[in-house]
Design a protein around this nucleic acid. Sequence first.
DNA 1: CGTTACAACTTGTCATAACAGGTAATAACA
DNA 2: TGTTATTACCTGTTATGACAAGTTGTAACG
Lengths: 244, 244
Amino acid sequence: MNTSEANAGSHQPLYIQIKTVLKKQILSGEYAPYERIPSESVLMKTFGVSRITVRQALKDLNSEGLVFTSQGKGTFANKPKATQDMQQLQGFDEAMRPKGYKTSARVVSIRERVADNNVQEKLQLGDKEKVIEVLRVRYLNKEPVSLDRSFFPVNIGEKLFGHDLTGDIFPMLEELLNLRLGEAEVSLEARPADDEVLQQLELEKGSPVMWVERLTRDQNKRPIDYEYLAIRGDSYKYCFKIER
Amino acid sequence: MNTSEANAGSHQPLYIQIKTVLKKQILSGEYAPYERIPSESVLMKTFGVSRITVRQALKDLNSEGLVFTSQGKGTFANKPKATQDMQQLQGFDEAMRPKGYKTSARVVSIRERVADNNVQEKLQLGDKEKVIEVLRVRYLNKEPVSLDRSFFPVNIGEKLFGHDLTGDIFPMLEELLNLRLGEAEVSLEARPADDEVLQQLELEKGSPVMWVERLTRDQNKRPIDYEYLAIRGDSYKYCFKIER
DNA sequence: CGTTACAACTTGTCATAACAGGTAATAACA
DNA sequence: TGTTATTACCTGTTATGACAAGTTGTAACG
C-alpha cells in the first residue's frame, strides 16, 4: 500500500482508503467528468495492492455513482450529481422561517436509553450501547405539525443536556462539537399515525402522516444522528427537483 | 454449480444465477422477513461454487436491500419493500423491473378534457384549453399500488391514443415525438385516500397514501406532463441521499 | 450458579492466479 | 486506401487460500 497517497496512520481497510483517495480526486475535479481513470493494473501498481482490493474500491465508487466502468474500455469519472435539488430539504426552521412561518418546538423528553437494534445498526453502535433520545413536537404557527424522535450517540447527545432544543439541533452541534455535516440518507413513506403521534399532534384517529427516517453523517462519514419524524399530512409537503 | 437449483441452460454468470435463486426465495416468502439465510460455506456446498461467487451474489442482494449481513452472525432476509430512488427520473416500470418486481397497469380511461386551473398553470396552457387525461392503476406483483392521473398538452397527448399505455409513457413519448426528458419538479405529501383511490386500489377506509405531484419538462424546458399519483402507503417508500 | 476461556462457526479483508469477453491500435493483405 | 487479422490492453468472472474480526455455545473453574 502506497502510504504517500493513503492515510498513513489509518486503520481503515485498504479498499476504503483507495476509494477515499479516488473519490477526493473525482470530487475535486482532478479527474474531469468522463475522464478516464487509470486502469486496474495501473492502480494495483500505484497503490501496491492486489487487484481484488482495487476492484472493491472501484465497485463501491460505482455504487456511489462516482464512476462508471465499461468492459474493455476502462473506468471513467462520472459527472458529479447536481445537488441543488437536494438543498431544498433543510432543517425545519431553516426551511420555514424564510417563508414567513413562525416556528417553535416543545421538548417532550431528553433521556439516555439503550439503543434498539435498528438504531444500533444505523449509528454503528455496540450491543446494549446507550444513546441519547430527544423527543420533540414541532409547531408551525402554533399548530403541532411533527413529532420528532432523534437518537444521538452518547458522546454527541450528552452535549445537548442543558441547552435550548426548541430550534434546529444541527447548527448547535456544529458549533458545540466543531463538526461539519456531511450527508443524510432519507426515506419517506405515508403511514397512519399511531396513538402517540395522534396525541402529541392533536390529530383525529385515522390521520395520515409522512413518516421520515433520516440518518445524518458528519464530514468524515461518522453517523451522528438517526431520527424518525412523523409529520402530519395536512400541513407539510416536500418539494424538489430532479434532473435527468 | 448445482444445476438442479439454478437455470440449467443459462449462460448467466454463476453469481447472477445464485442471486436470482435466493431472491426468489426471499420475495416468495420461503425465507421469512428477518429469517437467517444459510451461511456462505453452506451456500458454497449447496451451489458447488467458490466463496467469492457466493459473496458476490450476497453483496448484490444486500445492495438491493433484500438481505442484511452481520459479521459473525450471518445473513438475514430483509422485509421486502419497494423503494424508488428519487435521485433518478425514472418511470415506475423502469424503477421496479430491475428489482425483480412484476409490474403491470390497467388503463381506466384516456380522454380529452378541459384543463382545470392548476393544470393550466402547470402546463402553461390558455384559459379553457384542452388536455389529454390518462387515468391508470399501477400494479406491483398483482397488487394495485398507485392511481395515476396524468395530463398532457393535446399536441403531445393525442399521440397516445391507440397505443399501449400499460408501461412507462415517457420512453414512448421520447420515441414518438423525438423529445428528450429534461427535469421534473416533484412534491410529496401524506394524505388520506379519497373514495376514488380507495376503490381503485382496493383499500380500507382511512388508509394513508403518498400523494405525489410531478411536473415533467423536456430538454427545452417545455412542460410535457403534469400528474397526480396516489400511492398506497403500505407498500412503497421513497429513499434518497442529501449531500451538504 | 456465575464467570471466564476456548473452540467452532461466521463474515470481512486481501492475496495470487487463470480464463473469458470486449476494445482499440497496429500490421498485413487486397 | 479500405478491409481483415492480430496483438496488446482492458474489465468481468471464478477459483483457491490465508488471516482478521466478531458471535455463540460449551466446558472448565471458582
